[in-house]
Amino acid sequence: MEKILVGLKRVVDYNVRVRVKNDGSGIETDGVKMSINPFDEIALEEALRMKERGEASEVIVISVGPGEAQQQLRTGLAMGADRAIMVESATPVDPLSVARIFKTIIDRDGIDLVLLGKQAIDNDNSQTAQMLAAIWERPQATFASQIDMNGDKATVTREVDVGLEVVEIDLPAVISVDLRLNEPRYVKLPDIMKAKKKPLDQVALDEFDIESAPAIKELTFEPPAERERGVMVDDVAGLVAALKDKGLA
Protein backbone atom coordinates (compact mmCIF):
# COMPACT_ATOMS: atom_id res chain seq x y z
CA MET A 1 0.00 0.00 0.00
CA GLU A 2 1.32 3.39 -0.92
CA LYS A 3 -0.76 6.25 0.36
CA ILE A 4 -3.14 6.79 3.26
CA LEU A 5 -5.40 9.85 3.41
CA VAL A 6 -6.61 10.95 6.85
CA GLY A 7 -9.30 13.59 7.41
CA LEU A 8 -8.79 15.98 10.33
CA LYS A 9 -11.72 18.16 11.38
CA ARG A 10 -11.26 21.19 13.62
CA VAL A 11 -13.83 20.99 16.43
CA VAL A 12 -14.45 22.38 19.90
CA ASP A 13 -12.18 20.46 22.27
CA TYR A 14 -13.63 17.31 23.82
CA ASN A 15 -13.28 18.73 27.34
CA VAL A 16 -15.13 21.99 26.73
CA ARG A 17 -18.68 22.14 28.06
CA VAL A 18 -20.41 23.75 25.09
CA ARG A 19 -23.40 26.05 25.36
CA VAL A 20 -26.06 27.26 22.96
CA LYS A 21 -25.81 31.03 22.33
CA ASN A 22 -28.52 33.04 24.09
CA ASP A 23 -30.09 34.13 20.79
CA GLY A 24 -30.26 30.51 19.56
CA SER A 25 -28.20 31.32 16.48
CA GLY A 26 -25.55 28.71 17.14
CA ILE A 27 -23.15 27.16 19.61
CA GLU A 28 -20.83 29.44 21.61
CA THR A 29 -17.35 28.98 20.13
CA ASP A 30 -15.72 32.36 20.87
CA GLY A 31 -12.53 31.92 22.86
CA VAL A 32 -13.16 28.21 23.18
CA LYS A 33 -10.28 25.73 22.82
CA MET A 34 -10.29 24.01 19.42
CA SER A 35 -8.71 20.63 18.67
CA ILE A 36 -8.55 17.80 16.18
CA ASN A 37 -11.78 15.78 16.34
CA PRO A 38 -10.74 12.95 18.74
CA PHE A 39 -11.87 10.18 16.38
CA ASP A 40 -9.80 11.75 13.57
CA GLU A 41 -6.76 11.78 15.84
CA ILE A 42 -7.22 8.03 16.35
CA ALA A 43 -7.48 7.60 12.56
CA LEU A 44 -4.19 9.45 12.11
CA GLU A 45 -2.48 7.43 14.84
CA GLU A 46 -3.52 4.22 13.07
CA ALA A 47 -2.19 5.50 9.74
CA LEU A 48 1.14 6.41 11.34
CA ARG A 49 1.44 2.96 12.92
CA MET A 50 0.77 1.37 9.52
CA LYS A 51 3.53 3.46 8.01
CA GLU A 52 5.91 2.59 10.86
CA ARG A 53 5.20 -1.11 10.26
CA GLY A 54 6.10 -0.64 6.60
CA GLU A 55 2.52 -1.14 5.42
CA ALA A 56 2.30 2.32 3.82
CA SER A 57 4.76 4.82 2.42
CA GLU A 58 2.98 8.13 2.82
CA VAL A 59 0.41 9.60 5.22
CA ILE A 60 -1.46 12.67 3.98
CA VAL A 61 -3.73 14.71 6.27
CA ILE A 62 -6.54 16.85 4.88
CA SER A 63 -8.97 19.32 6.41
CA VAL A 64 -11.97 21.01 4.84
CA GLY A 65 -13.12 24.10 6.70
CA PRO A 66 -11.94 27.41 8.11
CA GLY A 67 -8.32 28.48 7.50
CA GLU A 68 -7.65 28.14 11.23
CA ALA A 69 -7.80 24.37 10.73
CA GLN A 70 -4.18 24.73 9.57
CA GLN A 71 -3.34 24.54 13.29
CA GLN A 72 -4.86 21.06 13.44
CA LEU A 73 -3.05 20.04 10.24
CA ARG A 74 0.25 21.26 11.77
CA THR A 75 -0.50 19.12 14.82
CA GLY A 76 -1.12 16.20 12.46
CA LEU A 77 2.23 16.86 10.75
CA ALA A 78 3.92 17.02 14.16
CA MET A 79 2.39 13.65 15.03
CA GLY A 80 4.12 12.28 11.93
CA ALA A 81 2.05 12.87 8.79
CA ASP A 82 4.16 13.56 5.69
CA ARG A 83 2.16 16.36 4.13
CA ALA A 84 -1.10 18.27 4.54
CA ILE A 85 -3.87 19.65 2.34
CA MET A 86 -5.99 22.56 3.57
CA VAL A 87 -9.21 23.04 1.63
CA GLU A 88 -10.39 26.42 2.81
CA SER A 89 -14.00 27.46 3.20
CA ALA A 90 -15.31 30.32 5.32
CA THR A 91 -18.72 28.67 5.59
CA PRO A 92 -19.45 25.15 6.87
CA VAL A 93 -19.19 22.40 4.25
CA ASP A 94 -21.81 19.62 4.21
CA PRO A 95 -20.74 15.95 4.53
CA LEU A 96 -21.52 14.99 0.92
CA SER A 97 -19.46 17.88 -0.41
CA VAL A 98 -16.59 16.90 1.91
CA ALA A 99 -16.85 13.34 0.55
CA ARG A 100 -16.75 14.71 -3.02
CA ILE A 101 -13.65 16.79 -2.21
CA PHE A 102 -11.95 13.71 -0.73
CA LYS A 103 -12.88 11.78 -3.88
CA THR A 104 -11.23 14.45 -6.06
CA ILE A 105 -8.03 14.19 -4.00
CA ILE A 106 -8.17 10.37 -4.18
CA ASP A 107 -8.38 10.52 -7.98
CA ARG A 108 -5.60 13.12 -8.19
CA ASP A 109 -3.13 11.56 -5.75
CA GLY A 110 -3.95 7.85 -6.02
CA ILE A 111 -4.98 6.95 -2.47
CA ASP A 112 -5.14 3.31 -1.29
CA LEU A 113 -6.78 3.77 2.08
CA VAL A 114 -8.83 6.57 3.63
CA LEU A 115 -9.00 6.62 7.43
CA LEU A 116 -11.63 8.86 9.00
CA GLY A 117 -13.16 9.33 12.43
CA LYS A 118 -16.51 7.59 12.83
CA GLN A 119 -18.15 10.92 13.62
CA ALA A 120 -17.20 14.50 14.40
CA ILE A 121 -18.10 15.49 17.94
CA ASP A 122 -19.60 18.82 16.86
CA ASN A 123 -22.43 17.84 14.52
CA ASP A 124 -22.38 14.12 15.42
CA ASN A 125 -23.50 13.37 11.85
CA SER A 126 -21.48 10.21 11.13
CA GLN A 127 -21.90 10.48 7.36
CA THR A 128 -18.69 11.44 5.54
CA ALA A 129 -16.94 8.04 5.51
CA GLN A 130 -20.03 6.17 4.33
CA MET A 131 -20.77 8.78 1.66
CA LEU A 132 -17.21 8.65 0.37
CA ALA A 133 -17.33 4.86 0.11
CA ALA A 134 -20.64 5.06 -1.77
CA ILE A 135 -19.55 7.61 -4.39
CA TRP A 136 -16.09 6.00 -4.74
CA GLU A 137 -17.82 2.59 -5.11
CA ARG A 138 -15.26 1.06 -2.78
CA PRO A 139 -15.64 -0.95 0.47
CA GLN A 140 -16.29 0.66 3.80
CA ALA A 141 -15.69 -0.65 7.29
CA THR A 142 -17.18 1.72 9.86
CA PHE A 143 -16.63 1.90 13.65
CA ALA A 144 -13.33 -0.03 13.49
CA SER A 145 -11.72 -1.21 16.73
CA GLN A 146 -9.05 -3.36 15.06
CA ILE A 147 -7.49 -3.26 11.60
CA ASP A 148 -5.18 -5.94 10.22
CA MET A 149 -3.60 -5.24 6.83
CA ASN A 150 -2.91 -8.17 4.60
CA GLY A 151 -1.53 -7.09 1.21
CA ASP A 152 -4.37 -5.70 -0.85
CA LYS A 153 -6.94 -6.68 1.78
CA ALA A 154 -7.78 -5.59 5.29
CA THR A 155 -9.53 -7.48 8.06
CA VAL A 156 -11.48 -5.07 10.20
CA THR A 157 -13.23 -5.62 13.53
CA ARG A 158 -16.21 -3.31 13.86
CA GLU A 159 -18.00 -2.26 17.05
CA VAL A 160 -21.67 -2.87 16.31
CA ASP A 161 -24.76 -2.87 18.55
CA VAL A 162 -24.72 -6.64 19.07
CA GLY A 163 -20.99 -7.05 19.63
CA LEU A 164 -17.96 -7.21 17.37
CA GLU A 165 -18.32 -7.89 13.66
CA VAL A 166 -15.37 -8.94 11.53
CA VAL A 167 -15.32 -8.12 7.80
CA GLU A 168 -12.72 -8.50 5.10
CA ILE A 169 -12.43 -5.69 2.55
CA ASP A 170 -10.45 -5.22 -0.64
CA LEU A 171 -8.31 -2.11 -1.02
CA PRO A 172 -8.69 0.66 -1.87
CA ALA A 173 -11.22 1.30 0.86
CA VAL A 174 -12.59 3.67 3.49
CA ILE A 175 -12.36 2.82 7.19
CA SER A 176 -13.99 4.89 9.93
CA VAL A 177 -12.48 4.41 13.35
CA ASP A 178 -13.89 4.02 16.84
CA LEU A 179 -12.44 4.95 20.24
CA ARG A 180 -10.84 1.68 21.19
CA LEU A 181 -8.70 1.29 18.08
CA ASN A 182 -5.65 2.90 19.68
CA GLU A 183 -4.41 5.67 21.95
CA PRO A 184 -2.94 8.56 19.97
CA ARG A 185 0.63 9.62 20.72
CA TYR A 186 1.60 12.90 22.32
CA VAL A 187 3.37 15.45 20.18
CA LYS A 188 6.92 16.31 21.26
CA LEU A 189 8.43 19.79 20.92
CA PRO A 190 11.14 18.87 18.36
CA ASP A 191 8.42 17.32 16.21
CA ILE A 192 6.47 20.58 16.26
CA MET A 193 9.59 22.38 14.97
CA LYS A 194 10.14 19.76 12.28
CA ALA A 195 6.49 19.93 11.23
CA LYS A 196 6.89 23.58 10.27
CA LYS A 197 9.06 22.49 7.34
CA LYS A 198 6.63 19.88 6.06
CA PRO A 199 4.50 20.79 3.02
CA LEU A 200 1.02 22.19 3.63
CA ASP A 201 -0.91 22.89 0.41
CA GLN A 202 -3.67 25.45 0.57
CA VAL A 203 -6.50 25.11 -1.88
CA ALA A 204 -9.66 27.23 -2.01
CA LEU A 205 -12.89 25.27 -1.98
CA ASP A 206 -14.07 26.86 -5.23
CA GLU A 207 -11.03 25.46 -7.03
CA PHE A 208 -12.74 22.10 -6.75
CA ASP A 209 -15.11 21.42 -9.57
CA ILE A 210 -17.57 19.45 -7.49
CA GLU A 211 -21.30 19.29 -7.86
CA SER A 212 -22.77 21.24 -4.97
CA ALA A 213 -24.95 19.20 -2.65
CA PRO A 214 -27.97 20.76 -0.98
CA ALA A 215 -27.10 21.13 2.69
CA ILE A 216 -29.32 20.33 5.65
CA LYS A 217 -29.86 23.90 6.91
CA GLU A 218 -29.44 24.53 10.62
CA LEU A 219 -32.13 27.08 11.46
CA THR A 220 -31.94 27.60 15.21
CA PHE A 221 -30.50 25.96 18.31
CA GLU A 222 -31.91 25.48 21.77
CA PRO A 223 -30.43 24.03 24.94
CA PRO A 224 -31.69 20.57 25.89
CA ALA A 225 -34.42 20.27 28.50
CA GLU A 226 -32.67 20.21 31.84
CA ARG A 227 -33.38 17.30 34.13
CA GLU A 228 -34.12 18.64 37.57
CA ARG A 229 -31.93 17.67 40.44
CA GLY A 230 -33.86 15.13 42.51
CA VAL A 231 -33.69 14.04 46.11
CA MET A 232 -30.69 12.74 48.03
CA VAL A 233 -31.28 9.79 50.33
CA ASP A 234 -29.14 8.91 53.35
CA ASP A 235 -28.85 5.17 52.99
CA VAL A 236 -29.95 2.08 51.12
CA ALA A 237 -33.19 1.90 53.13
CA GLY A 238 -33.99 5.44 52.00
CA LEU A 239 -33.20 4.49 48.39
CA VAL A 240 -35.52 1.48 48.50
CA ALA A 241 -38.28 3.62 50.07
CA ALA A 242 -37.85 6.27 47.34
CA LEU A 243 -38.04 3.59 44.63
CA LYS A 244 -41.17 2.09 46.22
CA ASP A 245 -42.66 5.57 46.39
CA LYS A 246 -42.34 5.82 42.61
CA GLY A 247 -43.68 2.30 42.13
CA LEU A 248 -40.27 1.13 40.87
CA ALA A 249 -39.47 -1.49 43.50
Binding site: V12, D122, N123, I216, E218, L219, F221, P223
Partner: peptide, 10 residues
Protein backbone atom coordinates in the same frame (compact mmCIF):
# COMPACT_ATOMS: atom_id res chain seq x y z
CA UNK B 1 -25.60 18.16 18.29
CA UNK B 2 -22.50 18.28 20.51
CA UNK B 3 -23.47 15.11 22.38
CA UNK B 4 -26.89 16.56 23.09
CA UNK B 5 -25.57 19.83 24.55
CA UNK B 6 -27.64 21.56 21.90
CA UNK B 7 -30.75 20.71 19.92
CA UNK B 8 -30.70 21.94 16.34
CA UNK B 9 -33.78 22.72 14.28
CA UNK B 10 -32.79 21.65 10.77
Amino acid sequence: VYAGSGLALV
